[in-house]
Design a protein around this nucleic acid. Structure first.
Lengths: 341, 341
DNA sequence: GGCTGTCATGTAAACGTTTACATATCGTAG
DNA sequence: CTACGATATGTAAACGTTTACATGACAGCC
């Protein structure tokens, strides 16, 4: 690896002092047009790239923002990362994106890593905002941050997400109004994340609003839906009332549920309705389309960057925003089979 | 934002010199157990995180690796990123992941950005390895890199991927051996990426090997499969021989194609067989499973990190590796409808 | 006791920037 | 002709580390 060119190389190449070169590069202070041109040529010729390390050290600002997400492969967070990426690029910031793999100790060490890079701020989704060490650390260090997707605590630096509770409640009401009376829920990361709990609570509230209760709650391992087959099988084997509709706490789970039902010879949505949550692309690449709640994931990321910058400048404004979601209630939802309307 | 604690704060807190503290932190040189303990306590107490900027500046090594991928939302690259992430963490490296959005000028500026961070090396997937400015720049600067997923040029620093040509040829042979005689291909980023071209060429070669030629080539906008509906409709409207099997250059395209066919009342795989490429999760979350080529995406990312480290140490060994792929030829593939076996 | 070697620590320079301050040049008003 | 403000550039210190070198303490050996 060649030694990268430094500002001194540029300076001596042009017969100038480093100060002048620095001024040209950051265009600060007065400079002769001729000089500026010479410097620019030298920069090109020597392939000079200013050392962000030195710059960060001197100016105590790194132009780096930290990002911590539970997963990069989950489309929800991939889209969020993508939105962050784009907005950060516009703002001249470089994101360092780390995955916590839903692991609390990795959440903590990710924060520690980012602190070392003197990040301008951190955008993150934690398992549980109310009890997060990672968040506590950021608060303690006074590093601005913006939560994404989480259910925010009281005193939070910044927050962007959707109203999971309300969205889930809307699904419950919608299913009830279609005539469903026996409704189940499939939850994955139920105990692990605050949003899964919020969706559950919201769904129950929605059912209650229509004088229903949850007929079944199936909990499965969130990573690869282990146990789903057995549970679904059990529910539909037993005599008695099996749900005519299921709300799944995310789309991947919903797709897996549909596949299992089909294997049992149960048709979706003719026999059973399925609703997911997230509105991922895979849900629209099938017939019938997966009914779901579409959340503006990329927009959440972009808005989080904006929120961070607002906070940094100390503008007192609002500390968070709840973005709108969209009900996609066609495709895999229909009235229950015996329903006369 | 509080001023972060520096090594000097630790030193004066313990009544030691910065040199000693530094030695404790990096455990180099002899230190009394007692002293080490005191330092560690101070680190915890003050929440000290060493400045990576200063460290990078002094040691001229940043512990940062650059990553450039065409997209973060495409599951293939999301998995690759995830694999990189994990292996990098094990090796004590921090990845800066940037998305080029398949844009050549963003590819270039991503390299420039990374150069500023004095990255130890770069892992990247470019549109076209043979003509990439980004790669040329890395070569010029002497920064080690490892290509992922690309079809490598002759003189390349490092390379990890699968044999797209061979895999596509295997699909062709498999379809031919099932009895298909009229076979089409749906290609997305056909003209844009080297691997799409490679898959196309390999597929043609496979067909030729069985004395067949490509019956139809449908090209669509890769981002959202614009035009697919019209093309598919056209093919099956016209009288004459319509393909009984389609090879799609990636899984997202394959899923979209299946959805379109179903809308035309064409059954998959009873009437028409569909094969994708990549083996993404969404393909397995449906019935029947999407036939595809599964590529070890996460492993490609992890192997690329290893390859980079090998290259850096100047170990002369191999400059690249081709990892194995896996044919998943069930679900959406079947013999053609009129086939007697 | 003096010499040597090992262990533990301190001193200070360097890494590549930015920037406050100093300097130099020059046109122009007094 | 001097003084002055503007303009353009140079000088040097500082940012937080690491590390070669220097120092000091203490043990073992003759």
């Amino acid at each position: 690896m060649n030694k990268p060119a430094t500002i001194k190389d540029i300076a001596s190449y042009c017969g100038l002092s480093v100060a002048t070169v620095s001024r040209v590069i950051n265009d600060k202070g007065p400079i002769k047009a001729d000089t500026a041109e010479r410097v620019r040529q030298a920069v090109d010729a020597l392939g000079y790239a200013p050392s962000m390390a030195a710059r960060a050290l001197k100016t105590a600002s790194s132009s780096v923002i930290g990002v911590i997400l539970p997963s990069l492969t989950n489309p929800v967070f991939a889209e969020t990362a993508s939105g962050i990426q784009q907005r950060a690029r516009e703002k001249g910031l470089t994101p360092i994106i780390l995955s916590s793999d839903y692991d609390l100790s990795l959440e903590r060490s990710a924060v520690a890593t980012l602190l070392g890079y003197q990040v301008e701020g951190v955008l993150l989704t934690v398992n549980d905002a109310a009890s997060s060490d990672a968040l506590a650390r950021l608060d303690k260090e006074g590093v601005p941050y913006c939560l994404m997707h989480n259910v925010p605590r009281q005193q939070v630096c910044g927050y962007i997400g959707v109203d999971n509770y309300r969205a889930a409640a809307e699904v419950a009401v919608h299913l009830a109004d279609l005539g469903h009376r026996c409704i189940g829920m499939v939850s994955g990361d139920f105990q692990r994340t605050d949003r899964a709990r919020d969706r559950h609570a919201g769904f129950l509230a929605g059912l209650r609003y229509r004088n229903l209760e949850l007929a079944q709650l199936v909990q499965v391992d969130p990573v690869n839906a282990v146990g789903l087959t057995g549970e679904i099988h059990r529910v539909y084997e037993q005599p008695g009332s099996a749900p005519t509709a299921w709300f799944c706490s995310n789309d991947l789970l919903a797709l897996a549920t549909i596949a299992k039902l089909q294997l049992l010879g149960i048709r979706v949505p003719e026999d059973v309705s399925i609703v997911g949550f997230d509105g991922i692309q895979a849900g629209t690449l099938r017939q019938p389309n997966l009914a779901s709640i579409r959340t503006p994931n990329a927009e959440i990321g972009a808005a989080a960057v904006d929120q961070l910058l607002t906070n940094k400048r100390g503008i007192p404004g609002q500390t968070g925003r709840t973005l709108g979601h969209q009900l996609l209630m066609d495709g895999t939802v229909a009235p229950p089979p015996d329903h006369l309307s």
